[in-house]
């Protein structure tokens, strides 16, 4: 009886989410023909360069986010409850506005420093846009860490550095993995930031845009997207096998 009320939602998602994904697969095999040409083509150096670009950008973004986010998350996690809430709200607040607006905002500053249309500009934009996705899971895992554990480590004779590497870091592992996934995967396919700030830096996101919206090349575009999705699912499957489930 109650199950019926789930059907409209399920049917909606099947029609407007799962069916479209199926059509991408169909196109990637050369609809209305059936051939593997497009998959072969996207494994050529031209596209390989695009994937490499995206991986480099996503990698640098992820590492930079991590280096900034870890001390920030650590700092917030050790505050009193009242301050924690305030700091978290302050952190999340800018993310209630769209990536587009935030990237537009950062354009102003990059313009002032004459950095527009450089790789540096793209990295700055990416880190700016993705930082909270790293901070929040790190915070969540560090918050569970008790101050007494750190104190116990001191009492047992470990100095602050040893304590950090032996106590703090291992316990935030799940947060680190979640943060890396949350930053790395979407930044791999990011379009807005490289397109607005990067000029000629081609990534998976910008080439997908070009293939679909400029050249209307559904077939190459579909094959490329399938490859991108495959990478994501392999990464997620690997993570889920290790951790059992995704905690966000």
């Amino acid at each position: 009886m109650k199950k019926i009320s789930a059907y409209p939602g399920i049917i909606y998602l099947i029609v407007f989410f799962y069916l479209p994904l199926l059509i991408v697969i169909v196109y990637s095999f050369g609809f209305p023909n059936f051939k593997f040409d497009y998959y072969i083509e996207i494994s050529k150096p031209l596209y390989f360069k695009v994937f490499l670009n995206s991986f480099i950008l996503a990698g640098i973004t992820t590492i930079s986010c991590f280096l900034l986010a870890y001390p920030l998350a650590y700092y917030i996690a050790l505050r009193a409850q009242k301050w924690k809430n305030l700091l978290l709200i302050l952190l999340i607040l800018p993310f209630w506005m769209s990536l587009l607006l935030r990237t537009y905002a950062i354009m102003n500053i990059l313009n002032t420093f004459g950095l527009m249309f450089t790789f540096t500009a793209v990295v700055i934009g990416m880190v700016y846009d993705y930082l909270p996705f790293m901070v929040l899971p790190l915070y969540a895992s560090l918050e569970k860490l008790k101050k007494s554990q750190i104190e116990a480590s001191y009492v047992l004779g470990a100095n602050p550095w040893k304590t950090f590497f032996k106590i703090t870091l291992p316990q935030s592992k799940s947060g680190i993995i979640a943060g890396v996934i949350l930053v790395f995967i979407p930044s791999l396919g990011e379009f807005v930031v490289p397109a607005m700030l990067g000029g000629t830096y081609v990534t998976i996101g910008t080439i997908t845009w070009d293939l679909f919206l400029r050249y209307h090349d559904w077939w190459r575009g579909s094959a490329l997207s399938m490859l991108y999705m495959a990478i994501i699912f392999i990464a997620l499957a690997f993570y889920m096998r290790k951790e059992g489930k995704i905690e966000i």
Binding site: P20, L21, V24, P186, G189, F191, T208, S225, M229, I232
Partner: peptide
Amino acid sequence: IPEITEALS
């Protein structure tokens, strides 16, 4: 799923 994939699908 990445937004761009959903959008193009």
